[in-house]
């Protein structure tokens, strides 16, 4: 346990140099969604971290259960989450806490879309995705 903590600490130290780049790619993805959202709805006034936060915490009914993104990812996306089905820990989503997130835009976009379908039974809209990422970027 201790050894893995030390390893993890070392890894954080090594990767913190690249944190900036990952924040950048997350920002790029958010920009992409923002452009798409504007295309779909010209009245869109850009991304809102506040709306993203509301989206993250909003409960919806899935398979007869009340679920929010926060159910698994906890109310604070910079914290380690807990899978409500398996009970296993999930690494933080916020790029500030987990530099591996949003490192590869194309991959993330695909996984994000699949994940929305799986968890809430439909794709998240570009506006929702963009809002959500700007919320993640605002979390320290």
């Amino acid at each position: 346990m201790k050894a893995s903590n030390i390893l993890f600490g070392l890894l954080i130290a090594f990767t913190s140099a690249s944190v900036h780049a990952d924040m950048e790619s997350a920002q790029k993805l958010a920009d992409k969604y923002e452009a798409i959202a504007k295309n779909i709805n010209p009245a869109s006034t850009g991304l809102s971290a506040n709306d993203g936060k509301a989206f993250f915490n909003r409960e919806i009914t899935v398979k007869g259960k009340q679920v929010a993104c926060a159910s698994c990812h906890t109310a604070n996306p910079a914290d380690t989450g807990k899978h409500i089905v398996t009970g296993k820990p999930i690494r933080p989503l916020a790029p500030s806490a987990n530099p591996n997130r949003f490192a590869d835009i194309d991959k993330v976009e695909k996984e994000f879309t699949a994940h929305c379908h799986d968890v809430i039974g439909r794709d998240c809209s570009a506006q929702e995705k963009g809002n959500f990422i700007s919320y993640l970027l605002s979390v320290n």
């Binding site: 899935v62 089905v85 398996t86 799986d118 968890v119």
Partner: peptide
């Protein structure tokens, strides 16, 4: 294999 709800 795919769904988080079927993970167990």
């Amino acid at each position: 294999r795919e769904s988080e709800w079927d993970r167990l």
